[in-house]
């Protein structure tokens, strides 16, 4: 059985001015994979995602997504940003915000199709925000807003779901809910999730890629103290079992 790569990053370097953020990063993500991308703040995780989305261009190396260019593939990706790129007091309901995820389908710029409505409704049910659909986004809690962002990404019926710190702004119980949801979604799509919490995501993801300017790849089972030290520098470790 041949396994196809849905994301292929080859020898990519990127810098913001003088600051080298990524250096010779090579990483492939297979179809159906659930990859966790971990590393310290400023280690280049978000930058790598933005390269995959085509929001940034690599200084060197190449990025291919779904066997084509990032620009071609972008609409087939669902992206959940770390920070909502909108004002919380924008006058828009949950339903309208989720529907915007359908943009990019044919004609969707001028009118929604019935397929758009179905996809958005399904996305809201899956993320358990269907009952909130008439609410203004300004009236939501942090966890509910996070679900709106995920629902918006799902409404586009993506082949790959890319999430940037989806649990950074919510409490622990919600965090588990979100990862349970991702585990279900992984049955039908490839998922790449960025997190700073290496211990937590290792319970859910199938493979962890550790990023701190350069890349070290590991299976979840071999997360060791040495690796964490390589990645974050010397830290005080407290062993804990989940």
């Amino acid at each position: 059985m041949s396994v196809s790569n849905v994301i292929e990053i080859v020898d990519v370097s990127y810098s913001f001015g003088e600051l080298q953020v990524l250096e010779h990063v090579t990483l492939s993500v297979q179809d159906g994979e659930f990859l966790g991308l971990v590393g310290p703040n400023g280690g280049g995780k978000t930058t790598l995602l933005k390269l995959v989305l085509g929001l940034l261009r690599p200084d060197q190396g190449s990025v291919k997504v779904l066997s084509t260019t990032v620009d071609e593939a972008r609409r087939r990706l669902g992206y959940v940003p770390q920070y909502a790129g909108f004002q919380r007091d924008y006058p828009i309901t949950v339903e309208e915000a989720v529907m915007l995820g359908c943009l990019g389908r044919n004609g969707s710029l001028f009118g929604w199709s019935s397929r758009d409505h179905t996809a958005a409704a399904q996305a809201m049910r899956e993320t358990e925000i269907y009952d909130l659909r008439k609410r203004l986004i300004g009236a939501l809690s942090g966890g509910q807003l996070q679900r709106v962002l995920i629902a918006r990404a799902l409404a586009s019926e993506p082949e790959i779901l890319v999430l940037d710190e989806p649990t950074a702004n919510i409490d622990l119980r919600m965090e588990e809910n979100v990862f349970e949801l991702l585990r279900q979604l992984n049955q039908r799509m490839t998922i790449v999730v960025v997190s700073h919490d290496i211990g937590f995501i290792s319970r859910y993801v199938k493979r962890v890629a550790c990023l701190n300017r350069t890349l070290v790849c590991h299976q979840t089972s071999v997360l060791s103290g040495d690796l964490i030290k390589d990645l974050y520098g010397p830290v005080h470790m407290i062993p804990h079992e989940h």
């Binding site: 940003p81 790129g85 924008y90 915007l100 710029l109």
Partner: peptide
């Protein structure tokens, strides 16, 4: 009347609109 949706997409969330090909 014609462009209310593109206007909504761009004023609400510029980055998301860009990703969706607007």
């Amino acid at each position: 009347y014609v462009l209310h949706r593109p206007f909504l997409a761009v004023t609400f969330d510029e980055e998301h609109a860009r990703i969706r090909g607007v």
